[in-house]
């Protein structure tokens, strides 16, 4: 699950959570240039895929490394 309201996702039991940058754009970031945003989206989806191959036993948040930079 890719979303911004991570605490809500964890509470309702989403097993694998990747934090997004804003509520209205789970796989985007309009503050970036189009090229940068596409790179960011690729990282989000790659992270989501990586997380799908990771075992979990309870709701777990998987932050994207270096998520502060575009």
């Amino acid at each position: 699950m890719v979303c911004n309201l991570v605490s809500v996702a964890a509470r309702v039991g989403a097993p694998r959570i990747v934090p997004a940058r804003g509520i209205p754009y789970p796989t985007g970031d309009p503050s970036l240039s189009p090229d940068q945003e596409r790179r960011w989206r690729r990282r989000v989806v790659q992270k989501a895929l990586e997380v799908l191959t990771t075992p979990v036993t309870a709701p777990t948040v998987f932050p994207i490394e270096g998520a502060d930079v575009g």
Partner: peptide
């Protein structure tokens, strides 16, 4: 439940087809 301005400008912000297809 949220402003859809960004989603409408680029639907990949909700359904990331472009990069999923690339991958």
């Amino acid at each position: 439940g949220f402003s859809t301005v960004w989603a409408n400008a680029d639907p990949h912000r909700i359904v990331p087809l472009d990069v999923a297809r690339e991958l």
